[in-house]
Design a protein around this nucleic acid. Structure first.
Lengths: 208, 208, 208, 208
DNA sequence: CATGAATGAGGGTTCATTCAT
DNA sequence: AATGAATGAACCCTCATTCAT
């Protein structure tokens, strides 16, 4: 690993996800990353700034993808919903460590700076999704729904799977230790479920 | 407050939800609860045992309610779904502090004992819900769906609202500080959304 | 055990010997003795007073035995030495727990009251032994020796065996856990050694 | 004092001897050594590891000296015994603090690691002494004796003097506070006594 | 630029003791 | 006479951070 800064970020992500922000000591991070303890303060200023750096490091990609999907004229609204589900499921499941950190720290815990950062990021992304759904409504594919809460359902469903991994392993009889099997089984089933859910929920023919 | 043990539990719930388990010191709890520092170890044995006690303290009611709802012969499956949504939305939103703690600690962080406890509790509750949906399917009200993930969507949606309270306050233009207004606005909208979502998702007439 | 006070004393002896005075908590004692925690303070005043009570409880017998041995006109000086060795070896080995406590607490640690108590007790006993040796010298059985240090050698030898029990188990290939075997093997060998040692040391015919 | 690590060790030795291991707090040590409290954990890892470090710090010298004495061809067995006595009396009396710690912690108290460490050290040293005595027996200077217990008598005698310093001060009318006077008086008398004792005990002409 | 040494603050826990009953 | 509840003090240890080199 050439870049020590990146190495620290990735190690921090791993440990924050595993033991929480408060539960992870900078000593842990330094040791696992194989760098000097003082280097973390030296590079990032503080433990909290390290978390901020991690969030920014991971946030860029999502927005670009959503914006592109939104602009794509070749896809009809249903295709876009499918793509959206595929994208988010893949993203959250494979980045589940980072996603858990975000889930946990968007709440009351963590500093206002962190909360602000996460909120801003999420708002920006949601704006793109809103446009996709509104476009579908304008084109008479989708019925009138609560857009914000619909997104909440999508995100919430995926979050449940990463946050309550333990529980779902018990529930679905999956070996807790085999990360790869868990992902494969869950990804397919999750995509299927969400597409089925959204298809029924959004379809204008199901208008009450 | 007559019962100091309960006072400690409630204070701990408040603080754990606000600052996380690791972020809360027993000194904090003792001070806010107005009790002696040593009393917490005296009553609960350790900080971790305190969390376990809190989980057990809050877990009893849910199962009883679900079981009762399940057994009720006077309600048709759609009524039961509505009641289920009402119950969970009320419960999670008004106990959002406790619920956030659970969300955060069912993950990798926290001890195996705690994780086990939460998993067991959730499995027990889910079993009741499964019966309700299966009953609706047998009676030809509901179509075939992924029951476990459907519940994940319901729970996940509500969780999002409590976990990302900050974000949704920004999104819905609600004053962050006024807890009462937040609850009222969100509860109504959330119930409506979830019922609409489940009605479309479960209805046998929407069979693909 | 009818007498709770005695029960506490014996339990304290056991635990003090095993884990030291500071290493033993009154909770330990209360629990092992099956009495209420507060009862110890109630009966003895404090943890330290409990140690004093223990010392006094164990000190009476020795002096009486020595005095009697000293006065016995039917025994010649060599017989008295043998009896002395037998008595001390038996006493210390079988009361090794109490003896270790004394050894450890006659030093700088522990309060002046305790130290005073132990010193007084030891001086009183030594006085009797001095008379025995001086009598043997007057009767021309024993040569001139350093009486105080000779007693130090006897006591010290026995103390070594109890204090360094671990070491001597390794050295003599004795199973550490079998208390009974240890005592039997050691008692015989110790008596033989000490009698041989003192016979050579005291015999007037070995006068330099 | 240039080396803070050594300073901590010496201070710990002082305090452990004075108040026992359990009776000494790391705060005490830090304060007396004039170092930060956290530095002790920083350097040694824990309070117990500090004791281990102390034992190892003090153990090296003894073995080397004994081995050298053993190998010395220019001395006859009686000379070697005299040197042995001189060496041990000097060593224990002047390092009495360390020696008391060892005495106290070779017993049941203290962790298996510590006990193991002490036992190993003592066994190693005793092996050298055994050779000296066996050599004297082979050369027909010494009679047959219980070698292990003979060493127990030597060590035990010296230990008594350090462990029961208080008692012997009373006994010998020595001012308790004047360390220097105590040592001088005791060292001379102790050497004389032990040499006299061993001469009688070992001399082949005193064979029973 | 990078780091070993060092530190003040605070962590959870256990202590011996007290006191109202 | 006996005890459950409660407490202030002190325990050892680890924390994130700083700073001289």
């Amino acid at each position: 690993m050439a870049d020590k800064k990146t190495e620290i970020l990735l190690t921090a992500e791993e440990l924050f996800a595993e033991k929480g922000f408060d539960g992870t000591s900078v000593r842990d991070i330094a040791q696992h990353a194989g760098v000097n303890l003082a280097m973390i303060s030296y590079y990032f200023g503080s433990k909290e700034k390290l978390l901020e750096a991690l969030i920014e490091y991971r946030s860029g990609y999502t927005f670009d993808t959503l914006e592109e999907l939104n602009k794509d004229q070749s896809l009809n609204p249903w295709d876009k919903i499918d793509r959206l589900v595929d994208f988010y499921v893949e993203k959250i499941i494979s980045n589940n460590k980072f996603h858990n950190i975000i889930s946990v720290h968007s709440g009351q815990l963590s500093s206002p700076e962190i909360r602000e950062l996460i909120t801003k990021m999420k708002l920006r992304n949601l704006e793109q999704i809103r446009k996709i759904i509104q476009d579908g409504q304008k084109k008479k594919f989708f019925r009138k729904v609560d857009i914000e809460f619909t997104m909440g359902s999508v995100m919430g469903t995926i979050s449940q799977l990463t946050l309550l991994k333990n529980f779902y392993c018990s529930l679905l009889n999956i070996d807790k230790t085999d990360e790869e099997v868990y992902r494969k089984k869950v990804i397919v089933r999750l995509k299927t479920h969400l597409k089925q859910l959204l298809r029924a929920h959004l379809d204008i023919r199901n208008e009450a």
